[in-house]
Design a protein around this nucleic acid. Sequence first.
DNA 1: TTGCAAACTAAGAAAACCTTAGTATACCTT
DNA 2: AAGGTATACTAAGGTTTTCTTAGTTTGCAA
Lengths: 105, 105
Amino acid sequence: MSLTSPFPLRLKQARTRKGLTQQQLGVLLGLDPNNASARMNQYERGKHAPDFTTLKRIAELLNVPVAWFYCEDDLEASIVDAAHQLTAEQKKALLAFIEKLKNQP
Amino acid sequence: MSLTSPFPLRLKQARTRKGLTQQQLGVLLGLDPNNASARMNQYERGKHAPDFTTLKRIAELLNVPVAWFYCEDDLEASIVDAAHQLTAEQKKALLAFIEKLKNQP
DNA sequence: TTGCAAACTAAGAAAACCTTAGTATACCTT
DNA sequence: AAGGTATACTAAGGTTTTCTTAGTTTGCAA
């Protein structure tokens, strides 16, 4: 992970938004309480990266789509987060709107 | 990676869209031509997952945002892909539109 | 200052990925 | 049909990473 992944920052954003400590989040994930704090800290500092199963569980607990963790730009992150809460019908309306945007100077 | 990551499928979608073989893509990434095929295949079959640096280079070569690889729903993937091609101004307009959508039955 | 909660870290054990050395499959061409 | 070639795919061991252990550091409140 020599290039910086957006994951550590996004993880911290979503965790603090929920008012959880690193250890609390780790325990909620089902990690061993003895090392929950160490592991979550390693993720949040970018020291290590979790596998997909862990990533998915974190996303569910924090109510964000997994893709949100990899948004490099804040505006894109907001869009992904907001779109995640729409119905399929609303998402289709959203796509149509984007197409209109693209065909406008 | 016991839960299935969307990455393998999205990788294949983006690679074939560009008309590249697994080996060609690997070589373009700067992988050793002797194992480029094996590695890309392992990614695409979900056998192994690349680190962020590799993920980012793949995304750039295939013209998608990294987040797109982690979209679990096709509609969300289309939105992320389309939004990626907008200007900051257009993204703001998009966010405003989403807020309107949410406040409508 | 002391006590405690939260954040953070080094280092070895454990698990994952990367490289090597192929095999399997599909599709042409002769 | 057989052979050749391009592409996809895989097992297994060496290498590199993560996970666990056992703490230290930081910040804040009593």
